[in-house]
Design a protein around this nucleic acid. Structure first.
Lengths: 342, 342
DNA sequence: TTGCGATGTCCTTAATGTTTGCCATGTTGG
DNA sequence: CCAACATGGCAAACATTAAGGACATCGCAA
């Protein structure tokens, strides 16, 4: 593979000159620069970012940590991140932690040893002190969804607002009177905000009594199905699920057990994953702009890399209520392309 | 960040000795080795694989190219790949080509300049000559699903067999008499094999006349829905979809247009993505072991990196017919966790 | 006990592909 | 004729590994 020396030889200049020419630095006449660029193309030269990174301390790689890439929500965010990174010439180092804190930690070490320039972190398990390893090495981190530490920027959906809108709709438009919340990872911010939005809205409406109980489980399809036995003991008229996967799991339980949705039981989720509108009784849910979330996160990270002394900030995306059939009442059309959860 | 020289200084040995000690090479006394390892740990040393790669020509990074990470099929494969790579100490460089040949090519260049050691390639757009760039640089490639060139190993599901099983079931058990095939990317191997399995099985059964027509479209949910108008003009009693997404799209069309499944129209897909069993009339489909596929691909790649003169091979996974309600007839229980397409 | 090769341990040096600071040379303008 | 500036060369630096050499120790036979 052609390297900088080959070009230098061909052009009868010094490698340093080639480097300056190719990197658009001054100190090279336009005539020489043009000649160098031309031979570089002719030789099919591509610079070795690893060697360059050795000296500039910029590997050109950015770490992307997700809890579970098969979760369509994370996959969409990842797509947004990776698209922006590509456009900016960065490489994406994928870390699928499979929701395990241990594996996540292992990946953190790996990212450090590979000298990534920054990290986009989607995590439900990391603690503030886990980020120490990055801070001490000067590696920028952007959190998505879960604001792990307020020393780093976070990009997230306004889950609280989404939950408020949804709850109000349930109570005021759909006549829900016995609500059961099925939540996910206990200390994930996503879970907390969604639950808070629900309870506070009920309180605001003077209807706190509507909440019959809150259950916690793994936020996926199978667990959503499995927990329904317990949920039904509370004889709810509506299940407020932490995300669509759980809601879909619940729906499948209803199908099997001949519970009519929305007649006997209303069902709602969060995220608006593709499958949410594919089922026979399309799911009322809160649409999240997952892809945009990823784009914003990557953009912000790149910005911070260029402005190393910028202070951490918080970017919130506003959600949109998607009223479909699963909670009865009138219905409104559109969105849901891509996928979702959290 | 502590480097090899710091350790050398502390231990009063030469950096080269530290290198040998840490890499488990011989030529270092056990006493010195132990001392070195201890101080390495104390200093929190982590080697810089990029610098090492500069000289060994082994970056420790492997490229993973997928057409669309939000597609649950690819996401599952990616998870399998990345899990195996992590266990073997490799990093995963994610390239989401968004089904664009152009972007894919750009990524190929990027992978080369980053000196990845190998590439796991899931592509529906790449042509044999596109792999040239890797071959000339000695970068090993493993294809998944689509055997782009027979100079590289391929890991794939036996789509042909799956299609045969499925078709036989449709004709013999479900009494299908007017079949329409809705296929995906025209020259993708996946499409070809699935279609071939169908037509050849019909021929074998002496029922070639059953196939009313074959339509091609983008293999996703929206296009599956959109093409149904055209499909119905052929007045089929069964739609043989290239994958579950298309089948689910078709199903949503049926719901809207009050076409009874499986009464008026039978529907089947391929891959057994999670959503396939979530819908009100669970989808008969062919289960693919997506995660395993990814594992096998990564394992094979690592094997080939260790045995550079190993010859290309082909690994086929056998599929499993999942009989559910969407084609009528009796039904069998289980699988479908994770997700799918191709 | 001496001599010799074999072996083990560690050091020295060069190399990987870039970038960067500094210096030398050449050119231009006043 | 000198200052100022533009141009491009030289060499060091980055973190690591590979090859080869120096030195000491050891076993064994003379």
């Amino acid at each position: 593979m052609a390297n900088i020396k080959d070009i230098a030889k061909q052009c009868k200049v010094n490698p340093a000159t080639v480097s300056r020419a190719l990197n658009g630095k001054k100190g090279v006449s336009e005539k020489v620069r043009a000649r160098i660029i031309k031979t570089a193309q002719r030789l099919g030269y591509s610079k070795n970012p690893l060697a360059a990174g050795l000296i500039t301390h910029k590997s050109g790689i950015i770490g992307l940590v997700v809890p579970d890439i098969t979760n369509p929500y994370y996959a969409s965010v990842a797509q947004g991140v990776s698209a922006v990174l590509r456009q900016s010439g960065y490489g994406t180092f994928l870390c699928d932690s499979t929701r395990s804190r241990e594996q996540e930690q292992q990946y953190f070490g790996m990212l450090c040893s590979y000298r990534v320039e920054g990290v986009v972190l989607l995590s439900v398990t990391a603690k503030p002190e886990d980020l120490e390893i990055f801070r001490e090495k000067g590696i920028r981190v952007i959190c998505v969804d879960n604001p792990i530490s307020n020393e780093v920027s976070t990009v997230l959906n306004d889950n609280y607002q989404g939950a408020c809108d949804l709850t109000e709709h349930l109570v005021c438009d759909c006549g829900v009177r016995r609500l059961v919340a099925v939540m996910g990872t206990r200390d994930a911010d996503t879970t907390r905000q969604r639950l808070r939005g629900c309870t506070e809205t009920l309180a605001r409406l003077g209807q706190s009594g509507i909440l019959q109980g809150t259950l916690y489980t793994q936020p996926d399809y199978d667990h959503g199905d499995a927990i329904m036995g317990e949920v039904m003991k509370l004889s709810p008229d509506c299940v407020f699920a932490v995300n669509d996967q759980v809601a879909l799991g619940a729906f499948s339980w209803c199908l099997r057990n001949h519970v009519d949705v929305p007649g006997q039981l209303k069902l709602c989720g969060f995220d608006d994953i593709a499958a949410a509108s594919m089922i026979s009784v399309p799911l009322t849910t809160v649409h999240q702009r997952k892809y945009v979330l990823g784009e914003k996160a990557a953009t912000q990270l790149i910005y911070e890399l260029k402005n190393p002394d910028s202070l951490p900030m918080r970017i919130e995306l506003l959600p949109k209520l998607m009223i479909r059939a699963s909670c009865g009442e009138r219905s409104s059309p559109q969105p849901s392309t891509g996928s979702a959860q959290s």
